[in-house]
Simulated assay, not measured.
Amino acid sequence: MAQKPSLKTRALGYLARREHSRLELERKLAPHAQTSEELSSVLDALEQRGFLSAARMVEHVIHVRRMKFGSLRIMHELREKGIAENLIAEALPNIRETEQDSAREVWRKRFGGMPANAKELGRQTRFLMGRGFRAEVIHQVLRQSVEDEP
């Protein structure tokens, strides 16, 4: 009978595939842990050695999501992953810095042209809102697109 991998081995395997937050790893490893103290000590050891980092997780999520999603969606995803509010607040200016360019690019790829009527305007607005872009960014993207048209 094959020996089951230790919690540390499982955790390192998960971290080798992609960055995880402490909460995500805790959820994945909980069924395999004998006690919650054992799980906490493994996660603490990984954090101390630098294998598990909330700051690196924030950078990873922002890097991956920035060109497709807005700040609201990214912040929500970080909260769902159990990232501390202070780390999210530190990253927010960095996300919002390029949010309008991202929204314009997402809009251009999806629609390519200005809405012909109010129904189409609502559809485009809802699409961008669903992607997590703020209302003022959406308004600027659609207004600037009107100004750019001949």
Rank of each mutant, 00 (worst) to 15 (best):
R56W: 13
E149A: 11
Y14F: 02
M129D: 12
S145F: 09
R22M: 09
A84S: 04
L128W: 03
A84G: 02
F127C: 00
F127L: 03
H20M: 03
V61P: 01
F69W: 14
I74N: 09
R49L: 11
G50M: 04
H32K: 12
A84Y: 09
L25W: 03
L46G: 00
R108H: 09
A33E: 02
L52F: 02
F127V: 00
E105C: 00
L12G: 02
F127S: 01
R56S: 15
E80C: 05
E24N: 08
V146Q: 09
L72M: 11
E19P: 02
L72K: 15
D148A: 11
N117P: 06
R49W: 11
L78I: 01
L23N: 07
E24M: 01
R123W: 09
E105Q: 07
V58P: 03
R27L: 08
L87P: 00
E90M: 06
H20A: 05
S41Q: 14
V64K: 09
E97A: 09
I62A: 14
K119T: 13
R126H: 15
R49Y: 09
D101M: 04
L142V: 00
G13K: 00
G112W: 01
L39P: 00
V64W: 14
F111R: 02
R27A: 15
G50R: 08
E24F: 04
G113Q: 12
G132S: 01
G122V: 06
T98F: 11
R10I: 00
M57I: 04
S102K: 01
E37S: 11
G50P: 03
P150F: 14
G50V: 05
P31A: 06
K119Y: 10
L92V: 04
S102D: 05
S40E: 14
A16E: 15
E47W: 05
I95E: 06
E147G: 11
P115E: 06
P150N: 13
M1A: 12
R22L: 05
T35C: 04
R143H: 13
G70K: 07
D101R: 03
R134W: 07
R49I: 08
K68T: 14
R49E: 15
N86D: 13
R65L: 12
P150C: 06
L15H: 03
K28M: 05
Y14C: 00
R65I: 07
I95L: 02
L78F: 05
L15Y: 04
H76Y: 14
L142I: 01
E85A: 08
A54T: 06
Q100H: 07
K28L: 06
L142N: 02
S41H: 08
K68C: 10
V42K: 02
E97C: 13
S6G: 07
M129N: 12
S41K: 11
Q3G: 15
E47G: 04
